[in-house]
Write a protein that binds this DNA or RNA. Structure first.
Length: 293
DNA sequence: AGCCAGGAGAATG
DNA sequence: CATTCTCATGGC
């Protein structure tokens, strides 16, 4: 076991681990004493920041870590290049070290299938349940952890089992996606090089994947920073502060186009910072439960 | 076009 | 303790 392996990585720009790992983009991190334990490239790792360096214990390779945490200038480029409008400026004021992680497309697809109409705690439980049931056990720092199951392993679970794990009506969605990838009908890796509209169309053709989930997979899993997922919080922010259209709430496609128009190539990055900031009470808790009605 | 089930648990009051 | 809400989607 390569438990003992440890590396230190220089930071090219701010990295706020608390904000980054618990902002609802990744669901397997756990806070402990002075660090965080989770997975990078499906390898158990423990990370912490000390003396301005990212300290990592575990077998994840240096390139995998650089990719995952975007220690490649992506974050700095976002901070300097994105248009800081009124709200994003405030959000970045508090969370300039909140990074968009570059995650595995398969795990992202499953996690965001599970995310629909759920909360972060539930997503975490479901993801952990899948790992505990079908993921390979691996020992790390005197603990047994479970890697995220590959498509074949999840495809081997029947729908009833998935339901028993608490996935509810999302069970058939996960089962279908697992079969599609395991059978080779869906090639997630190839989506990384497809144009955004093509990736979107392919993903939304899967049952349980609508525009929101597809945008999440494209952003968090495929690393396409232009995707602008609009969940209820972003929707609220946009409806309240940006949308002046005929409908009560902005249509999804309108929000997506708005994100691109306002924040450009880094729209998804901006979306995530705004999402986290709003949820952490940035713009008055529920964005004014009293005035909206 | 709007409405609602389906599933479960945290947050809210 | 009851109600509402939660990183939505699909079917009607």
């Amino acid at each position: 076991m390569a438990d003992a392996a440890a590396v230190r990585l220089a930071l090219d720009a701010p990295l706020d681990l608390d904000a980054t790992l618990y902002s609802g983009q990744a669901f397997r991190w756990r806070h402990d004493e002075d660090g965080h334990t989770g997975f990078v490239a499906n390898e158990p790792v423990r990370v912490r920041i000390e003396d301005g360096l990212l300290h990592v214990e575990g077998a994840a390779s240096r390139p995998a870590l650089r990719c995952y945490f975007r220690l490649d200038g992506t974050h700095a480029a976002f901070l300097t290049g994105v248009r800081r409008d009124r709200w994003l400026a405030q959000a970045l004021d508090r969370f300039d070290g909140l990074r968009l992680l570059r995650q595995d497309p398969w795990e992202a697809l499953v996690a965001f299938l599970l995310s629909q109409n759920a909360n972060e705690a539930k997503i975490r439980r479901n993801v952990e349940a899948l790992a505990a049931t079908a993921g390979e056990a691996v020992s790390f720092r005197d603990r047994t952890m479970h890697r995220f199951p590959d498509p074949e392993a999840l495809a081997a679970l029947d729908e009833a089992t998935l339901r028993r794990l608490g996935l509810g009506y999302r069970a058939p969605y996960v089962a279908h996606a697992a079969r599609a990838v395991a059978d080779g009908r869906l090639d997630l890796a190839s989506l990384e090089t497809e144009p955004y509209p093509t990736a979107l169309e392919t993903l939304t053709s899967l049952p349980g994947v609508g525009p929101k989930v597809a945008d999440c997979v494209i952003l968090y899993g495929l690393g396409r920073l232009e995707a602008f997922p609009a969940d209820v919080w972003i929707r609220r922010l946009v409806d309240r502060h940006y949308y002046r259209g005929p409908n009560k709430t902005a249509p999804y496609a309108w929000i997506r186009a708005f994100g691109r128009r306002r924040f450009g190539a880094n729209a998804g990055y901006a979306q995530h910072v705004l999402f986290h900031w709003v949820r952490r009470g940035g713009a008055s808790p529920r964005m004014d439960a009293t005035t909206r009605k």
